Amino acid sequence: MSIVSRRLEDELREGPEISPELDRLMRNARKASDFLKALSHENRLLLLCLLAEGERSVTELENILSLRQPTVSQQLARLRLDDLVTTRRDGKTIYYSLANDDVRRVISVIYDMYCGTSASDAK
């Protein structure tokens, strides 16, 4: 399976000009890098795993993770800034959920790799 097209590889070898395809690839690489940076913090990753199961309030997340409210709120703010979670307000309570199915798919793969039964069987 080829990730980078043969044409793009040839353009990279030929010179410093940036083609539209290379420009698009570079923009998407930046998005992917930002996404992976957001996932690289263990508390943010745990929050996303919990939110993959369904919508939760800040208080629920605090209690499950045994973390203080400022810590949970700070990490949720980062995830929101990166467009990985969305919010819904009900009175004074704010509920968080995953922003889209792409986030859910990545979290699912990470969970399967590191937390699923096949991961624990291999150890």
Rank of each mutant, 00 (worst) to 15 (best):
M113T: 13
R7F: 09
E9L: 15
S5W: 05
V72S: 05
A29C: 05
G54M: 03
V58R: 08
D34N: 02
E42P: 04
V109W: 08
K92T: 15
D23W: 14
D82K: 15
M1Y: 14
A52H: 09
L81H: 13
I3N: 05
S118P: 07
A32S: 07
E53Q: 03
A32D: 09
F35H: 02
M113W: 15
R78H: 07
V72T: 15
S66D: 14
L25K: 05
Q75E: 15
L65P: 07
S97T: 01
D10K: 15
M113L: 15
N43R: 11
G54S: 03
L84H: 01
R78K: 12
S5T: 11
R105P: 03
K92M: 11
R27F: 10
L98M: 05
S108H: 10
L47H: 05
L67H: 01
R89H: 10
N63C: 02
R27T: 05
R105H: 13
L76M: 06
L47P: 04
E42K: 02
E9D: 08
I110L: 15
A119Y: 04
L84A: 01
L84P: 01
L98V: 06
F35V: 00
H41D: 07
N43H: 11
D101M: 03
S120W: 10
R104S: 06
R7S: 14
N100R: 02
A119K: 03
L36K: 06
R27Y: 08
E60L: 00
R104P: 01
A29M: 09
L84I: 01
I18L: 14
I18W: 04
Y95F: 12
Q74W: 13
E53K: 00
R24C: 06
N63L: 04
S19A: 10
G15F: 14
E62V: 01
N28E: 12
